[in-house]
């Protein structure tokens, strides 16, 4: 569960950074896309998945 909370929390913070940071600081030119949004979404999905698995395991026990 803590892994899920941490990853989902970091995912949300990265999404926030992706939306709120000025384009120059996002290094869009060098990277080619908004990596904060992409990686933030990946971490959020992973975190939510880990939390769902943890809840399922708790119910089973």
């Amino acid at each position: 569960m803590p892994i899920g909370i941490l990853c989902a929390g970091i995912g949300l913070l990265l999404l926030w950074a992706g939306f709120s940071t000025p384009p120059a600081e996002l290094k869009l030119e060098a990277i080619g896309f908004n990596i904060n949004l992409a990686w933030g979404a990946v971490m959020l999905i992973f975190g939510l998945g880990a939390m769902a698995l943890a809840l399922q395991a708790e119910k089973r026990d």
Partner: peptide
Amino acid sequence: KSLPTGMLGLGLT
């Protein structure tokens, strides 16, 4: 030098 704000925090963490 290669990570932007946000990802940099994750990298340092």
